[in-house]
Design a protein around this nucleic acid. Structure first.
Lengths: 259, 259
DNA sequence: CGGCGGCTTGAAGGACGTCAAGATTAGTGG
DNA sequence: CCACTAATCTTGACGTCCTTCAAGCCGCCG
């Protein structure tokens, strides 16, 4: 098995991709850029409003709470976490964003970012000016459709978290979803790297870090997975999926490709 | 104090509003229809794709999980609950939708409804064909902008639930948000009717019905509110707001209008 | 080497769920 | 009008899962 599974991204965000029209093969806008029936000039328009940013070092902010909303970002490489700080100063981890996924969509309405977006490791991004994108969307129905799809998808993701009662269910669901998201971008569905500390996972799932530790150990003792440091190998994805009973819209347990 | 606070909706969904251009004064699309600079003919186009439906009796489905997505709905009167049934047959209440709010937005992406929408009492709706709406949006930027806003708003709402750790915090947050949503549609922010049984509230907040009962009683004993049956009066909204520490995007504790 | 952050492991306490019974109300039919 | 049933809500006692507190382990980097 090739060890590409342990790399954060398959693309090399080198200096050459700024003008390369194929840079977004893993990007969520690929559906528009690549197979879409648009002419070169139309694609050029879309690419015009894309700005490549990065590298951002671990801990750097992509945007901050209450920053004026101007752009949405696609992650090209690395992992980004979104979080808020509540009135009592407690951190609330809202989610993690893998390569190919978008951040900032929830800021359209209040026109200010409702959360912080922070790089968890070295991160490269595509920055899309949203006003420009909206104007383009009025002329290119496929872009509009893609935008609607992206935003709507985000609602679904946010909703998923609400299910899952016990710590086992929550953690199983988290791992299975992560696996599906890696697979959707061409990574291995069975071996991947958790890009975040246990404390962030725990916070996101509303658990204590100790509980995450204990449940992961339990999963390993039961032969469901193998975990070393942050490297994970899912050994029995079906049983994990069965534990995460609240997963309806996800892929079925059968028929996944194991890289 | 007038008892309008205890009515489900201020509008009378009688036979006259089908052709009345002002029927959507409480509707979320009001921003487009009413103050928008559109001509009568443009508004007529928008109203063309609206279909009034109802009344639906308590327990009736607006749509069902896996129904083909074709429309989004605005609630005109009554309360609608959305829910899913997980793999083990357990119900998961995703949310409640008050008059003026939209349902079905999260179905854009998979093009099937990801949940059931069920009337909790007598419900009247506006039905918008989404494909027609999308076409219209390419010609009317304000409509597009409004659609983006609506969908994005939904993400925010879904995200809010993720915070709130303790039962007290969750219930306080639920009540304060409900209050804000009523106020946003012109109802009283301090006196309103819970349109749903305790069991649905409990399920939605991931609590046992007994816990909801106990916490509400505790709130009442502490003088935070008065609750009789499903009629609620918030006596100390600021203290409730303080308990619900995770409310950042909501209105501040000061300056609310008490109907 | 020594400090430091992240992770693990153990023991004790608390918050919430579960189980069970009773209270209040609404709905229904006699 | 009243009795009967069913549904919803409340209240209490008990058990359990998870958190909290505390200590120890490991890899990393100065």
């Amino acid at each position: 098995m090739p060890n590409t599974a342990f790399q954060p991204a398959p693309i090399d965000p080198g200096p050459g991709d700024g003008s390369d029209i194929h840079f977004c093969s893993t990007c969520a806008f690929g559906a528009v850029c690549l197979p879409g029936g648009y002419t070169k000039s139309a694609l050029a328009e879309l690419h015009c409003l894309v700005e490549h940013t990065g590298p951002l070092r671990a801990g750097a902010h992509v945007f901050r709470t209450n920053d004026r909303f101007e752009s949405i970002y696609a992650v090209r490489a690395g992992i980004v976490k979104t979080r808020t700080i509540d009135a009592l100063g407690r951190e609330q981890v809202l989610g993690f964003h893998l390569p190919g996924e978008f951040i900032g969509l929830s800021a359209i309405h209040p026109s200010r970012y409702p959360c912080d977006a922070i790089a968890l490791d070295t991160v490269y991004l595509c920055r899309f000016s949203f006003p420009a994108l909206a104007v383009l969307a009025t002329r290119m129905p496929l872009v509009q459709q893609e935008l609607f799809r992206l935003i709507s998808e985000d609602i679904g993701k946010a909703t998923q978290l609400s299910g899952d009662l016990s710590a086992h269910e929550r953690l199983a669901a988290f791992l299975v979803r992560l696996s599906e998201r890696f697979a959707a971008r061409g990574f291995s569905a069975t071996r991947f790297r958790l890009g975040m500390p246990r404390s962030d996972i725990a916070n996101h799932l509303r658990l204590a870090p100790e509980t995450v530790s204990r449940v992961l150990r339990r999963f390993q003792d039961d032969g469901l997975l193998r975990i070393d440091e942050r490297e994970v190998e899912l050994l029995q994805r079906e049983r994990l999926h069965a534990l995460a009973a609240t997963l309806s819209p996800g892929a079925p347990a059968t028929g996944f490709h194991s890289a």
